[in-house]
């Protein structure tokens, strides 16, 4: 008899990770960047118990990384596999809810409605207002949902060294990005995709800047900031505010520059332009 198990937003990633993992693996499981959240800790313990693998919170030590909503700050290598949990695998659903029609649009690379949606956002709001799950073009052919990672993490998928497997348990869909594949956020030739602007934010625990931060409301009405990637945070705490001493190379360097120069573009007059 099949046990009725409700999809709680983890099933897809869990199925993939349990398929790949064995005793010889060392896994890292994190949710919103944090290794110690209840959800991540439960999944990690479950996977370790079922497969006999060891666990880690260090990105560079893991063989398989299962994540919900984040990609680590430290660069992944070609021997590592990233598993992302996907709630909604269809990037066209916001413009075409009929799945069969959306499949036809993919078949003929008919992404006009998607471009129109972005254009309407520019006209109405002055900038793209897609938050997480920013749609990307893979291998210059298919529009894909990168799962609800923040825009900060989206460029990390472009020409990456590691294999990424994305799985939507509820919709029973699985897809993958091979290493060294073009993954480009949708943007116009004169209006560009932008990552979240955390350039002014300083981690109150480690003093690190130019990484993705959690914004924590304080009692006096202001906000405090902490590194979202807790594995990276623990390395930063070990080595003062210069995590470069203990951490591996990051996708965004200490000055906030992306490791592929020119991939992220800025409009004329943008203060963040290099």
């Amino acid at each position: 008899m099949k046990c009725p198990s409700p999809a709680v937003g983890e099933r897809g990633g869990l199925q993939v990770t349990l398929t790949l993992t064995g005793q010889e693996d060392r896994i890292k499981v994190f949710d919103q960047g944090a290794d110690e959240s209840v959800n991540a800790a439960n999944l990690r313990r479950f996977i370790a118990r079922m497969t006999g693998c060891s666990t880690t919170t260090d990105t560079t030590q893991a063989t398989i990384l299962q994540s919900r909503h984040r990609i680590p700050e430290e660069m992944l290598r070609d021997d590592q596999i990233l598993v992302l949990q996907v709630p909604d695998p269809e990037p066209l659903r916001s413009v075409e809810f009929d799945t069969s029609r959306a499949q036809e649009m993919h078949a003929f690379k008919d992404y006009g409605l998607m471009w129109l949606k972005l254009y309407e956002q520019l006209v109405r709001y002055g900038s793209f207002i897609q938050g997480a799950s920013y749609p990307v073009m893979v291998h210059k052919r298919y529009v894909m949902s990168p799962s609800p990672i923040p825009r900060w993490d989206t460029p990390k998928l472009n020409q990456s060294a590691h294999l990424t497997i994305l799985c939507a348990g509820r919709e029973k869909r699985i897809y993958a990005i091979p290493p060294w594949t073009d993954v480009e956020p949708l943007e116009f030739s004169d209006r560009f995709f932008h990552v979240e602007d955390h350039s002014e934010w300083v981690c109150r625990l480690s003093g690190v800047r130019h990484k993705f931060m959690n914004e924590i409301p304080l009692a006096d009405g202001t906000s405090g900031f902490e590194l979202s990637d807790t594995g990276y945070l623990s390395k930063a705490l070990k080595s003062g505010s210069d995590p470069a001493q203990s951490a591996g190379a990051c996708y965004f360097d200490a000055d906030g520059h992306f490791h592929q120069p020119g991939f992220l573009k800025f409009e004329e007059g943008d203060a963040r332009k290099e």
């Binding site: 398929t19 790949l20 064995g22 005793q23 118990r49 079922m50 497969t51 006999g52 294999l163 993958a176 091979p178 290493p179």
Partner: peptide, 26 residues
Amino acid sequence: VIPRESHSQRYERWVYLTLLRSMANP
């Protein structure tokens, strides 16, 4: 009772991973 991966299951998983890696590295 925790299920343990048998030797043949482990070998099958390794073959699967090898095929996965070969498709990822043409």
